[in-house]
Amino acid sequence: MSSLQSKDLLGIKGMTADEIKLILDTAATFRDVSERDIKKVPALRGRTVINLFYEASTRTRTSFELAGKRLSADVINISTSTSSVVKGETLLDTARNIEAMKCDMIIVRHSCSGAPEFLSKRLKSSVINAGDGFHEHPTQALLDMFTIREKLGRLEGLTVAIVGDIAHSRVARSNIYGLTTMGAKVRVCGPPTMMPPGIERMGAEVHYNMDKAVEGADVVMMLRLQLERQAAGLFPGVREYAKLYGLNPARVGRAANHALVMHPGPMNRGVEISSEVADGTPVILDQVTNGVAVRMAVMFLLSGGSKAEA
């Protein structure tokens, strides 16, 4: 296999194991590019990539921007505060205007689930989902899988515990789809108030007790807790949350000896992850490094010439 089926990357759902493997394998070669003195290849020379961000995210935007620039694409950032969004232009009008300027790829982050899919159906450009609502964040899951495979040598047969606010997490959904497709076992853990109905139908095992969820796990993936969820009554307080669902050295001890601790960032130290654990796991920064390589791979693989007209 040497190509992706779609012109877009909207989610991990529906991707085959071969497609995921292709992206991860391709990312490995791009990881080398980032290690060189000249961190640039001309693969996307002359292509224009638009970062269309309707939701603030320095980290993901920077990662996509670097990925595009290291492929020699021209990358333009449009974010809500600086665009016509504030003037009330519709999503479709904004996107059509951008496309009229002849761009090849639009990377969309939006607080509304489905916004990238909406655009992909109406634009010729490739659309990459950089996170939509609570739906999917496919490049995050790909970089997580890349990192796990790099550190543990495989994905198949591993047990991965994802802990935190599953209901409001696009990272959790994309990882559940990806990891189960690649043959890993996924446990999700969090308070029932943050567990979306039917999540087990997506192939995850549901836990409310974190000690049990991390027992023997090869990977413990912590999710960021949005502190404003407290106001919505989803948990009574940070202290209790940290006690029930925070990752501390004792809980790390319950996981497998070689267990990886991961976090998509930014971390709330002392809430979902204790500082000792956060500082003891270099993997979290490797995730960031690998993010650029994975995004380069995705952009490269989607950049095939004739797909747009197909």
Partner: peptide
Amino acid sequence: LDITMYRDDLATRKSQPVPQAT
């Protein structure tokens, strides 16, 4: 040396070649 990323036909190919190690 892998030259995939430096090819001059990337924009016109249907699917992208799989890069090898440099």
